[in-house]
Design a protein around this nucleic acid. Structure first.
Lengths: 370, 370
DNA sequence: TTGTACGCGTTATCAC
DNA sequence: GTGATAACGCGTACAA
């Protein structure tokens, strides 16, 4: 099984193939042999323990590494060390730009701290989540960042009991106390709701997906009702299941009509980006391309199309959320043993035309709406 | 996932910590000891070599595994076996829905074939791409799927020379001959261009990002010109750099005005989703919310907002692209030694209002456009 | 049918 | 300064 790639008596041969020989990547042993030394010195060099090595040996090592194009095997390294610099990142839905943006923060932070994110995309399937969670333990990730929908207490206990730190993103999980980072939902919702009221809308309709086990949805809905109450405004909630939205959309139409018939200026408040898109598409089908003039729409999540639609939105500090999640994990991995933390970041209201100035007579008449 | 608590002589104690003992995950040795047997039998059980094991032993093994909540260490397994079931997936830009959709195909196929995708997101940064490519070799992935922008021959040679199969997605890389899967660009562009001409548009403007080193962009642009020529239509190309789009957009305005002044019915053809969005936002700023009535827009990539904007688009078989990429890789990993293949999948034209019937007098007059 | 011994690539320990 | 050698967790001849 020895290979000593190309000995001095065959110079120039295989010059274009720096690797040991066939397919197999060079190992630390290959490098040691090539440099005429033992594995220990190579390992020392790799781990930055220079200064302990003689000038001469150091040069030989570098030459050998370059010649063989050697890269240390992270798997073996992890096996020995007990840690492989892998951290798991479970995402419920990459179709949601929110997830992608958080991911970018996570990646940047990992990059900076020397971790490698093992990204798992559940694609909204609960079994996938379970399966991926299993896989993550199998690959011995050092920690996990979780943003999922169906994850229950039991699934995460495998990690917490195993001493593997878990950081939750956007939503909490019942029965699990651990670090969490996400949007300050109450503040964000209050901000947006106040904006609608300030602009003169007097019938608010909050539209949200089924809140089952997704804490952020529950929090947003609750915050909406509280704010509406505290402002003595009129508002209600509509639950929509994106998988089968027909009935909810019909209900939506009715409520809009009813409010208008009562002379109210109605504004729709979508609890997140996907909901907003579904609603917007529906409004466009009903009111035509100029639907914006007929009904106001605001959303949490500043989707890429929000600018195109001129929709007011609450921008989440997504990048920062991802960054902080990794930082939390890093601290835990460093041995920090503090109680579970909760990091709630503020959202930013981006005002666009969709919620601008609801003066009743002006917007209604010239439009062909309804 | 029940874990029959613990042994009979300590009932109730530590019921909440099924793992071996302290944080450390159980090893195969622990299981062997627990089951009162050797590691070999455990290994056999894990690899499905049942039937070779006695009824009794099998039961003990299952019990031990459940009790210790044992999960084989993929790292160690990979180290020994020489393959760790990891395949690298390098993506240029997850912000582009195209990438996410391809990814979903990749994940599903990996899932089905027993691989674990190691997802690397370069976020449009060339150094990131290089760095991730390094990391992938470091983690000894068995194969790579690459969809990147700045990747050059040399970077990929590390894999090909190392005998690690590479599959390219959407674009080829100069100097690298290897499996590739993507859209049938010539056919897709021809399809869309013909549609525009059929609908009565007689001034076509193809808008594309700088084609430097991205083969798919070049192919699309070339196909556009060829089709325009073969149809004896009038068309030109505009290059836009999304990072600094101002000048290109100004140029766009001029060309639109010129064409209109000449009595032409102009249609814009965006080479991909991100370009389409940028252009659409610009058109909206210029022509107002009803910009659709003023100028036709068509794009390759059926973005999520396309339906909202009522934009005609060419839907790429993204999911299938991802699936095929993994299949190609799987075949190579199985030892298949055929020449490099190229799999070009057809796109699907989704006709929406934006390109509907360019009868000149009807669409222009009632709109307040320009 | 079951157990023993060795090696995968790396790091840690302890000699020299 | 440097280099053998023993683990890390697992798979696999080979022996029993």
């Amino acid at each position: 099984m020895t290979n000593k790639s190309n000995d001095p008596d065959h110079p120039g041969t295989e010059a274009h193939r720096p690797r040991s020989f066939a397919g197999r990547p060079a190992t630390i042993t290959d490098v040691a042999r090539e440099a005429g030394t033992g594995k220990t010195s190579i390992s020392r060099y790799l781990n930055g323990e220079t200064g302990v090595l003689s000038r001469d040996l150091l040069g030989r090592i570098e030459a050998a590494i370059a010649k063989l194009d050697y890269r240390p095997n992270q798997m073996a390294r992890g096996l020995k060390r007990g840690r492989n610099r892998l951290i798991g990142m479970l995402l419920a839905d990459l179709t949601n730009p929110y997830s992608v943006e958080v991911l970018q923060g996570v990646e940047a932070a990992c990059h900076a701290l020397g971790y490698m994110p093992l990204i798992c995309h559940a694609a909204n399937e609960v079994d996938m989540e379970r399966r991926y969670l299993q896989l993550l333990t199998t690959y011995r990730v050092e920690g996990v960042i979780v943003n999922a929908l169906g994850v229950k207490e039991e699934l995460l206990q495998g990690f917490t009991h195993g001493g593997i730190p878990v950081v939750l993103v956007d939503r909490t999980v019942e029965g699990i106390v651990t670090d969490m980072v996400g949007l300050d939902n109450p503040a964000a919702v209050a901000l947006a709701t106040r904006h609608l009221v300030d602009e003169g809308f007097d019938e608010l309709l909050f539209i949200v997906q089924p809140v089952t086990h997704v804490s952020s949805r529950r929090l947003r809905e609750a915050a909406f009702r509280e704010t509406v109450a505290s402002l003595r405004a009129s508002g209600s909630t509509l639950v929509i299941d994106l998988a089968s939205a027909a009935s909810a959309l019909a209900e939506l139409d009715e409520r809009i009509d009813a409010a208008r018939a009562a002379g109210k200026r109605v504004a729709l408040f979508a609890a997140n980006g996907p909901v907003a898109l579904r609603v917007a598409v529906h409004l466009k089908e009903r009111f035509g391309t100029n639907w914006q003039a007929s009904v106001a729409l605001l959303a949490i999540d500043d989707s890429e199309w929000a600018q195109l639609a001129g929709m007011t939105a609450v921008r989440q500090p997504t990048y920062e959320i991802g960054r902080r999640a990794v930082e939390f994990l890093h601290e835990r991995l460093g041995g920090a043993a503090m109680p579970a933390r909760e990091c709630l970041l503020p959202g930013e209201l981006i005002v666009r035309g969709s919620t601008h100035c609801a003066v009743p007579e002006q917007a209604q008449l010239p439009s062909q709406g309804l």
